[in-house]
């Protein structure tokens, strides 16, 4: 039966534009391993029971995110319970694996930007923007997403390594915005964006011994927070609701630990909030500013 189906597909493939299945899979966020497994099951020996069982469950999970969840996303925002125990079967991505994947992403992305690929075209065309399978493996796992976030920050990815205070962050932002939004969209249910923003807030609100105005790292993080809460890019992204949901949280964190950067961030977050937001948080902003000017 499977060879019948494949045969049919091959005919169709010849009549239409020929696109490799792996490419097609990539464009629908399907792990390349699915295509491999299908190929094996169709043309070679039947794969082992263990692999089949694992991938069938991942398939059910993929269908959740690409079909079932979209039917009516309101009532059951949490990832279904039935998907939770299955994750044990998929190995948790390691620090090195994630770091290497992200590094190779940066290299490709830089080459793309250098060769002048139109940024708006990228998502429709090719390559680096497709989520690496490993990022999919972080789905719904808090520890894995925390790890991913830590690598993005600590391995000097979101924040360039040799950055001096006052240097523009535009380069890094251009480099990463697309991937960050894609992860945020794909991991909408598992709170990647929340974890990222929490981490940003932690950095901004922690007091350091350094003269805060010279703290280039904090300055860079502050630029990222402002980007997420006020740029056109994020406002027009599919996760705009998630961003809005986090606005109050981020603002509150800043005000509760007023320092040079947190007050700057708070003002920006406030400025780009809607009217309800402004009415609600105005008194707190005044209080925070006052507290900071006294300290």
């Amino acid at each position: 039966m499977t060879s019948f189906v494949t045969g049919f597909c091959d005919i169709e493939q010849k009549t239409m534009k020929k696109v490799p299945m792996v490419e097609m899979a990539r464009s629908i966020d399907m792990p390349a391993s699915f295509v491999e497994l299908r190929h094996e099951a169709t043309h070679e020996e039947l794969p082992s029971l263990q692999r089949l069982a694992r991938n069938a469950k991942l398939g059910v999970e993929w269908l959740w995110h690409h079909y079932w969840f979209k039917l009516d996303p309101v009532p059951d925002l949490n990832t279904p319970r039935v998907l939770q125990p299955e994750r044990k079967a998929v190995p948790m991505p390691t620090y090195t694996e994630l770091r290497d994947v992200l590094r190779s992403f940066v290299t490709r992305r830089k080459a793309e930007i250098r060769s002048g690929v139109d940024l708006n075209e990228i998502s429709h065309t090719e390559s680096s923007i497709t989520l690496p399978e490993i990022v999919n493996r972080c789905m719904g796992r808090n520890e894995a997403l925390t790890l991913l976030t830590a690598i993005l920050l600590e391995e000097r990815m979101l924040i360039p390594a040799k950055r001096n205070p006052g240097d523009s962050m535009q380069g890094a932002i251009t480099l990463w915005n697309e991937l960050l939004t894609r992860i945020a969209i794909y991991q909408r249910n598992s709170g990647f964006l929340r974890i990222l923003v929490e981490r940003f807030m932690f950095i901004i609100t922690t007091t350091t011994a350094l003269d805060v105005t010279l703290d280039a790292f904090k300055e860079a993080v502050h630029a990222w927070v402002i980007e997420i809460f006020s740029s056109e890019w994020w406002r027009h992204s599919e996760v705009v609701e998630t961003v809005e949901g986090l606005r109050g949280y981020a603002f509150n964190e800043c005000i509760m630990a007023p320092n040079y950067w947190s007050i700057k961030v708070a003002k920006k977050i406030y400025k780009h909030g809607d009217n309800d937001f402004k009415v609600r948080w105005r008194p707190l902003l005044e209080l925070g500013e006052l507290q900071f000017s006294r300290s």
Binding site: T2, T6, E12, M16, A41, S48, L49, L52, G59
Partner: peptide, 20 residues
């Protein structure tokens, strides 16, 4: 294994067809 394989192949191929 045969049941898994058939289901899986169909799932992958149909997802591709939807994309097409």
């Amino acid at each position: 294994r045969a049941a898994y394989s058939a289901a899986f192949c169909r799932y992958v191929v149909e997802a591709m067809q939807d994309l097409h």
